[in-house]
């Protein structure tokens, strides 16, 4: 059988793919921000001196990492309306995926924070830096460098995972492809195209991030 990509000439499908790409981008963008912030909050909770915070943080991470994302997103999709909360599928996806990604981000950030031992604080304080300055000039630059690689990995995973959001009717790249396939019935061509698109994008991100990591990496 020959590959047939004629359907790409139909502007209607191109528009659909564009819409899908936009939604994938939107979900990725917001999840990147919220996922990082949530991850930071829970990382700080897990490092906190208050026991109850540590327990909540540990449970949060454990739970999210030991249950499938698909179940999590269905939980919100079917659960939120029962609570009387009506949102769009895109927003539901952003909520579910931000929460999901926060667990792995939490672990990455925590590893970064733990890399900054007490000696670093002593040295910075003795040089005259106060707590805020120490965090700004010493703790953050070091921990973010240590956390960079795992955070990029999580980012790549995030992009991969956005493709499951079509299961709650989001028209992302995958959702758009599914709709197009429903009309032209060229599954191999469409999904192969999608696979190559994701592959190229993620390979590009990997290459760029490795170049950045090489520049900023520190050996502790």
């Amino acid at each position: 059988m020959k590959l047939n990509y004629r359907f790409l000439k139909n502007p209607q499908y191109i528009a659909l793919l564009k819409e899908g790409a936009l939604n994938t981008l939107i979900i990725t963008f917001f999840c990147l921000i919220f996922g990082f912030l949530l991850g930071l909050i829970f990382a700080l909770m897990r490092q906190s001196k208050v026991k109850i915070f540590r327990i909540i943080g540990a449970f949060w991470v454990d739970f999210l990492r030991n249950t499938p994302f698909l179940v999590q997103i269905f939980f919100f999709y079917y659960g939120l309306p029962v609570l009387g909360i009506q949102t769009s599928p895109v927003i539901t996806s952003i909520i579910a995926l931000s929460i999901n990604i926060s667990a792995v981000n939490c672990e990455a950030i925590r590893a970064g924070l733990m890399a900054v031992k007490k000696d670093y604080f002593d040295c910075a304080y003795a040089l005259g830096f106060d707590k805020i300055q120490t965090i700004r000039y010493v703790v953050l630059p070091i921990s973010l460098r240590v956390a960079f690689k795992p955070l990029v990995n999580n980012f790549i995973n995030l992009i991969l995972t956005t493709s499951t959001c079509f299961s709650i009717t989001v028209v992302d790249l995958m959702g758009a492809s599914k709709i197009i396939n429903g009309r032209v019935d060229r599954p191999f061509e469409i999904y192969m195209m999608l696979l190559v698109m994701y592959f190229c994008l993620l390979t590009l991100i990997s290459i760029i991030s490795k170049a950045i990591d090489k520049r900023i990496a520190i050996k502790l």
Binding site: L195, F199, S206
Partner: peptide, 25 residues
């Protein structure tokens, strides 16, 4: 390995489940 690691699992599954039969018969 690289395409498998760098593309969504759903896409891979759909490619195998819907795409392969059409392509390979």
């Amino acid at each position: 390995m690289e395409p498998l690691r760098n593309s969504p699992l759903v896409v891979q599954l759909f490619l195998v489940y819907y795409g392969l039969p059409v392509m390979a018969g």
